[in-house]
Computed example of a mutant assay.
Amino acid sequence: MYVAVKGGEAAIRNAHKLLGDRRRGDRSLPAIGLDQIVEQLALAVDRVMAEGSLYDTELAALAVKQARGDMIEAIFLVRAYRTTLPRFGYTRPVETSQMAIERRISATFKDLPGGQLLGPTFDYTHRLLDPELAEDGIVETPERRVEVREHTPRVTDILGHDGMIEADGDMPEGVETGDLTREPLSFPLERDLRLQALARGDEGFLLGLAYSTQRGYGRSHPFAGEIRIGEVEIELEVAELDFPLTLGRIRVTECQMINQFKGSSKQPPQFTRGYGLVFGQSERKSMSMALCDRALRARELGEDITAAAQDEEFVISHSDNVQSTGFVEHLKLPHYVDFQAELDLVRRMRGEHERRESENSETKEAAE
């Protein structure tokens, strides 16, 4: 708190009022509602839920509104609220093969069992501003097709059937999945904790790392095996019941990356996996997560660690935008005592430097 600022608490209260005034904006315009944010800024809401680690569209929309569109501030608000919630238990792992699919594409197989669905995507749009969107015109509504299937095989299942890709990494029996929100991280990490950290990680940071792996900073030759977006059921096991209780559905994006692997003394040449799963519709984040996941498996696969994206401690320690924001923005707080100490030190060092320069000059003149 800026306790040293003239005016103290009164100045801070006025700063809060000014923030509220700027948030509301021009009073001649209608205030934006949470339902509008949820429906019309859905991808922003999805990012806040994913990196805030809390699936609630209304709370995420409230955070976006309160933060005036500052995504990291909104994520911070959701993350802080999340810490106040009680925990009733852990749900069962979601079964994405039974997803109610809205979008499903593969860059490796053209003719997928079950077909490919383009769904809502920017992939085929021209990156030109559309003036018609400035007006509240009528938008043509396409036929909505969300298919619920008992089982839609993944591309990795096809490769696995032929033994061309490593087996899916099942947890050993009796091993409990870690929870980074309850226990402090201790390196090296198991993959379950790495994936948790990546799922909460900053999209821009992970995107940059993922890009670096494709430019040669780390062994990576990836293919987007499959990307799917849709809804999955959330189930909770209750001790009094002999069947899981369905709590509802959430929308998620899943990405399975396929990477080359030349083999090792223990494993034959085969494809390896990179995995990404995030709340909402977020292909860029899930793809970046999958690329970083594969890069961070370097030690496990016996590869040399030569790039930043392969350095587990570097990636995980710097991927959380809430921690990063706190550490960078704390520099705005008063550091008067620290700076005065540094200033005094620099003055003394400068005095020593000038004294030595003077002595050297006198010695040189005497020699001449």
Rank of each mutant, 00 (worst) to 15 (best):
E313Y: 10
F314Q: 10
F314K: 11
F314L: 05
V315M: 02
I316V: 08
I316L: 04
I316P: 02
S317L: 02
H318N: 05
D320F: 08
D320Y: 08
V322L: 05
V322K: 04
V322E: 04
V322Y: 06
V322S: 05
S324F: 06
T325C: 07
G326I: 01
G326Q: 04
F327Y: 15
V328S: 12
L331A: 06
L331S: 07
L331M: 07
K332R: 12
L333I: 01
P334W: 06
H335E: 05
V337I: 03
V337H: 09
V337T: 09
F339N: 10
F339D: 09
E342Q: 07
E342D: 06
E342F: 11
L343R: 00
D344Q: 11
D344H: 11
L345S: 02
V346C: 00
V346D: 01
R347C: 12
R347V: 13
R347D: 15
R347P: 07
R348T: 15
R348C: 06
M349Y: 15
R350C: 06
R350S: 11
R350N: 14
G351Q: 15
G351K: 15
E352L: 08
H353A: 12
E354V: 14
E354A: 11
R355G: 08
R355W: 12
R355Y: 10
R355Q: 08
R356M: 04
R356F: 04
E357D: 02
E357T: 01
E359W: 09
N360A: 10
N360M: 11
S361A: 00
S361W: 01
S361Q: 01
S361M: 01
E362P: 06
T363Y: 14
T363H: 12
E365H: 08
E365F: 09
